[in-house]
Amino acid sequence: MTHTQTIKIAGAVMPPLFALTAVLAAAAVFLGPTVPVWRPGGSPATEVVRVPGGPLLYREAGAFTLEGHEIDAPLTQTHVAGTLEVMKYQVSAAQYGLCVEEGACAPADNSAGASAGLPVTGVSYLDVQNYVTWYAGVTGQDWRLPTDLEWAHFARLGPEPDDRSAPSGTMAERWLNTYRQSAASGRTPDLAARPRGHFGENALGIADIGGNVWEWTDTCFARVNLNAAGNVMSRLETCGVRVLEGQHRAYMSAFVRDAISGGCAVGTPPDLLGFRLVRDVPWYDGLLRLFD
């Protein structure tokens, strides 16, 4: 199966929750203590969706220029190599709260009055790094933020729109056009987090892609200058700014928790900042399948 909506274990296709339990149980049986079974604080185990690698059309994140004119990054045919396990839902306020309780994470900005079943919001990239470290320690697994490419791969939203693939008009015209397009989108902020799953699932069974919680990725902001032939003349990465994904792509300083006050001078800022983690499926995963 190319689109792994559920995890295949022992020849049966099961809903993810059961499947995960089965995975963990199987792991415990076959691999003993090397793969810990973890149910933090009695909360439901983290549901994951397995996403095989594959090809995709991708528009790289960052600011691109073609001979000095700002353009959108060229669309390229690329691929994701390995299989990923992707959290089906964004990390919840309850899950994040465990990290806070243990003193490994700072409380989220929106923690006052936040319901445990909601996705955690009001977290910066730096907060997420603390969570990643803590979560990896607790689970013994290498959970991490996805790269922007990986996010694009599992989000299945298609590449970013092509507004400016070639320079057209004067600088001022492009500036005004960009402003007007942003103004015409007419999006008004939607700042109330919704219960996980509210925004539905994509074709892979991953929930809440493109809802009102934007997701941090591990990808740094890059400025890339191209020449007329499309060759990269220079590339400078600024890792103090990271790429956020959601209804549209955004760039945000790593310490920002609230996009409304933290960036996006022109254009509509993300409503809420949250995250989900991924991990590379380990090499011994194939061994499990041998026992099918």
């Binding site: 004067t170 005004l176 402003y179 007007r180 400025r223 200058n225 003349m233 220079s234 400078l236």
Partner: peptide, 22 residues
Amino acid sequence: AHILVEGEWNDDLMKQVVAPRP
């Protein structure tokens, strides 16, 4: 407040001589 002004850019008043580069 924002004001959107249409017209011809005057390079004499301002020009980006070199776009951002390393």
